[in-house]
Amino acid sequence: MFNLGGPEKQADVQGFLYNLFADRRIIDLPWGIRQGLASLISSRRAPIAKKNYALMGGGSPILSETRDQAQALETHLNRGAGIDAKVFIGMRYWHPFIEDCVKQIEAWKPDEVVVLPLYPQFSSTTTLSGFEAFKKAWRGKAPVKYVCCYSDNDHFIDAHVQLIREWLKSKVGDTSNVRLLFSAHGLPEKIIKNGDPYQEQVESSVARIMAHLGDIDHVICYQSRVGPLKWIGPSTDETIQAAGRDGKAVMLIPIAFVSEHIETLVELDIEYAELAEKAGVHVYRRVPALRTNKGLIQALGAEVMKALGAVGPVIGDHDCAKCHKFCPKKRAA
């Protein structure tokens, strides 16, 4: 099970940022240039980032949340799947790294391995980057399957539907004047134009959720823009301001995040809440991430079992055609 990772304390922040921006899937430049640029960006962004992490106690909760999710999934798989399952954790940009996780898995000597991203929607910048890190480090003999995405998994959809309904009833009440904002992490537009299916999968998730919720005003938006490139939109901040102009109450749903971290606890809960107040939004509520929600754990369990039943390696062979072009085996073929 892998995720982005995050600094656990203030001293980790710059190193985490360096690892993030040194990834060729994040900055597509030759290694030497990318390394220098990552060093420059991380040193400049670290002071601001440290202040934001300080708002969460100094570091990110993403590792502890991932451990909780791993334990819940392991219990779920061993309860009724008829297998002896052990869930290992690897992070892409901070400890415990995917490469360290691989060593633990090899020492356990499994019969089969499933690589499971905690990103519901596939993107070359997140899921594929993790796959590549695992493939580069893996020296074991067990067959490996890769779960590319599960944004349309019925359990995943139902978990969001039930949580949104609960929050609408308890936190808003009157749905006639509420606007649901489904916020996902943004991407540069050029990545989507290159065929990355992330935006399409976000939109598909929301369409299926809204088919259950019915006729409620809603918008898909994208947060966390950095740099000079044109990003996919509309942006979350612009969408919040528009809701203020329209006199709408706002309920924000983090559709692409399954854990609480800096982009939910600081960006959505603090920065955008302040923006909403200035924009005249009279009600601003943020639905929590799914975390260890039963529906999410069921979705992950179902995807693991599906992967174990697949013939051949899932990456390069899996049945998600929209992700095929990003699989190294497909490109080599």
Results as ranks from 00 to 15, higher is better:
E203T: 06
K169W: 11
D158R: 14
A184K: 02
H218K: 05
E203F: 05
S124M: 11
V206F: 06
T236Y: 02
L252C: 07
I255S: 01
V258M: 01
E260F: 02
P188W: 03
A249Q: 15
G195C: 09
A256F: 03
S235F: 11
N194Y: 07
D196V: 01
N153H: 10
G195H: 07
S235I: 08
I164L: 09
G140V: 03
Q199P: 06
G244C: 07
D246E: 15
W167H: 13
S170I: 11
R245W: 11
Q223H: 12
G247T: 04
V206R: 02
A242P: 04
I209N: 02
Q223F: 10
S204M: 12
V144D: 06
R225V: 13
D196H: 12
H212L: 08
F122P: 00
Q223V: 03
S204F: 09
E200W: 10
F134A: 00
L187C: 11
N153G: 06
K171C: 08
F156D: 00
W167N: 15
D237F: 05
H155W: 14
G173M: 07
K230Y: 13
S205A: 09
G233T: 05
W138R: 09
S176R: 15
P143G: 07
S204L: 14
T239P: 06
S151D: 14
Q223A: 08
I164F: 04
A242K: 13
D217I: 05
I192M: 12
S224T: 06
D246F: 07
V202D: 01
G195A: 09
Y150S: 00
D215P: 06
L128Q: 15
T236E: 00
L181W: 04
K135S: 15
Q223Y: 08
Y146H: 11
S129P: 02
D217H: 10
A211F: 09
P228L: 11
D154H: 12
A159V: 07
G130P: 08
D237E: 15
M251G: 05
K169D: 13
A133P: 02
V172A: 01
E203Y: 04
I255E: 01
I232E: 01
S259G: 06
V161Q: 07
G247A: 08
F156W: 02
E132D: 15
S170L: 12
V161P: 02
I157A: 05
Q201G: 00
T239A: 14
E203W: 03
Q223W: 06
W231I: 07
D152K: 10
K145T: 11
S224E: 06
A184D: 00
G227I: 09
G214H: 10
I232Q: 05
G247P: 00
A242L: 12
I209Q: 00
S224F: 00
G233I: 08
F257P: 01
T125V: 13
Q201T: 05
H155E: 14
K145D: 14
D215Q: 15
I157S: 03
V219I: 14
L229A: 13
P188M: 05
E200T: 10
N153S: 11
A159W: 03
W167A: 10
L128N: 12
K141W: 12
G214Y: 09
V178C: 09
N194H: 13
L128A: 13
I191S: 06
S124P: 04
L252D: 03
R165V: 01
H185R: 11
D174Y: 09
A211Q: 14
I253W: 04
D152M: 10
